[in-house]
């Protein structure tokens, strides 16, 4: 009960303080009729308009750029597809590995071996014999 009474008393004092902190009629009237307020307000409006015009240029550029994003993404995807497609077209087909290659490994570079190691050509043994025979013949000469 006493607490409630104290709260009510404090609330009344609070209202008194709030009312006392308000501007007087004279101050309010002086502020409302001040000849400079309208001039300052017009200056503030002009300044704000200038600021908006400046930022408006950047804003419109940003909006245009934002609208261009989907188109740019589409162009990027198309370019990627074209790149992959053209790379696949120009790539040589993978050579088929012969049985001999699987057994003896990839032959070293050389005209004879390239010719002789073709799929329908002679076997490694035949090639070996040819080379030995040729060397033998040259030696015999």
């Amino acid at each position: 009960m006493a607490n409630r009474q104290t709260d009510e008393q404090l609330d009344r004092a609070g209202r008194l303080v709030l009312r006392s902190a308000t501007g007087s009629e004279a101050e309010t009237e002086a502020a409302a009729t001040s000849p400079f307020v309208f001039t300052r307000m017009r200056a503030a409006i002009a300044e704000e308009e200038r600021r908006r015009n400046e930022t408006g240029g950047w804003l419109s550029m940003f909006l245009v750029a934002r609208r261009a994003v989907p188109a740019m993404a589409l162009v990027a995807v198309l370019a990627a597809i074209l790149t992959v497609w053209s790379a696949q077209l120009s790539a040589p087909s993978a050579p088929v590995q012969s049985d001999e290659e699987a057994l003896f490994g990839t032959p070293a570079a050389g005209v004879e071996q390239t010719v002789l190691a073709s799929r329908n050509g002679p076997s490694k043994d035949e090639v070996f014999n040819i080379v030995v025979d040729r060397n033998y013949g040259e030696g015999a000469k």
Binding site: A21, T22, G23, T28, A30, A31, A32, S34, F36, R40
Partner: peptide, 19 residues
């Protein structure tokens, strides 16, 4: 000005709110 004067007591403050 009256609305501003409920929150501010000084003339300059009230003028600022009007502006």
């Amino acid at each position: 000005a009256y609305t501003a004067s409920r929150f501010f007591a000084r003339r300059e403050q009230i003028e600022e709110i009007i502006q």
